[in-house]
């Protein structure tokens, strides 16, 4: 029994150096700062939208009506500053939770205007994990200030936990998406490809009629039903089998590569851009991002 507990502990709470979560902080924080800074104008425009279309989600459900636009703008600017400070690892104990809360609010508010986009869920969830765990003990201003070293030679389960939790959260979201397809009106027949083909057609039609243009590849391949069967089966398997990625590091890498490819495939066929997923930042936790040469446990 003790062996089982120890094995489980090693799997769930593996020891790691502080560089491991620090790299994830740099990747995720850097991506967030870049992503939001490119969307300030779009977000400001949303803040000035028709108040009758406000349909709050997440923490924004506390609101009965939209915030004054200038206040909503101000929260974005505050989040931009927080994301920069988070990425640099400055006063992480305060900035980490503040950044996580501000990003949660910003993205929830963005999704509170009659349409929920599902490409930012993991960004918000990963940031919550990284903001609430010790991810700035290396490669950060805090680390330099505390002992003048960018990469302290330590090993501790606290540094292994963030990537474990992030991997679990990521695979859980894919599992939920897979179950959604099975519980939908099509059930297992979703995998026969006809539904995916129709979805791509419906999406392409909307894009054509609303002025942005359908993805040319999706239009060209529309008649190839067999290909859509293959793609539907593959993507459904990838979603339902996502938790298996937690059992083995090589399987995890293969799964992450598959999911990464799936999002690029969606981009090619449908013109839908899942930016966080396609950047690769979302899957960084599935790959070794540190050098495990250090040996001294902390404490």
């Amino acid at each position: 029994m003790k062996r089982v507990v120890q094995a489980l502990e090693a799997r769930v709470l593996p020891v790691a150096p502080p560089v491991r979560p620090a790299v994830l902080r740099l990747v995720t924080g850097g991506w967030t700062a870049y992503y939001l800074s490119r969307r300030v104008d779009m977000l400001r425009s949303i803040h000035r939208g028709d108040p009758k279309l406000f349909d709050p989600v997440g923490p924004c459900r506390l609101l009965n009506s939209p915030l004054p636009p200038l206040l909503a703008d101000g929260i974005i600017y505050a989040e931009l500053v927080a994301s920069a400070a988070f990425t640099l690892g400055l006063k992480h104990r305060v900035v980490g939770p503040a950044h996580a809360a501000l990003l949660l609010w910003t993205m929830s508010y963005r999704n509170s205007w009659s349409m929920i986009f599902h490409n930012d869920n993991n960004l918000v969830l990963h940031t919550a994990v990284l903001g609430l765990t010790p991810t700035a003990d290396a490669l950060s201003i805090d680390a330099i200030r505390s002992d003048a070293r960018l990469a302290p030679e330590l090993l501790d389960w606290r540094y292994g936990l963030p990537s474990t939790v992030i991997n679990a959260v990521t695979t859980a979201t894919y599992l939920v998406a897979g179950i959604a397809k099975l519980k939908g009106p099509l059930g297992w027949s979703w995998a026969d490809g006809e539904s995916l083909r129709s979805q791509i057609a419906a999406d392409g039609l909307r894009k054509e009629l609303l002025g942005s243009g359908a993805a040319p590849l999706g239009v060209q391949l529309y008649e190839h039903t067999g290909l859509f069967r293959l793609l539907a089966t593959g993507s459904l398997a990838l979603e339902l089998a996502a938790p298996i990625a937690l059992l083995d590091r090589r399987v995890a890498k293969a799964w992450a590569a598959g999911a990464f490819g799936m999002h690029w495939g969606i981009r090619a066929l449908m013109g839908i851009t899942f930016r966080h997923q396609m950047s690769g930042a979302m899957f960084a936790s599935f790959f070794p991002v540190d050098n495990l040469r250090t040996e001294r446990p902390r404490g």
Binding site: A180, L196, L210
Partner: peptide
């Protein structure tokens, strides 16, 4: 009812016909 950031991911689950309205 879908939510954010805790979603039920209903995208691509609807049953579609060979025609649609936009």
């Amino acid at each position: 009812r879908d939510g954010f950031p805790l979603s039920c991911y209903p995208m691509f689950t609807a049953k579609r016909r060979r025609h649609g309205s936009v």
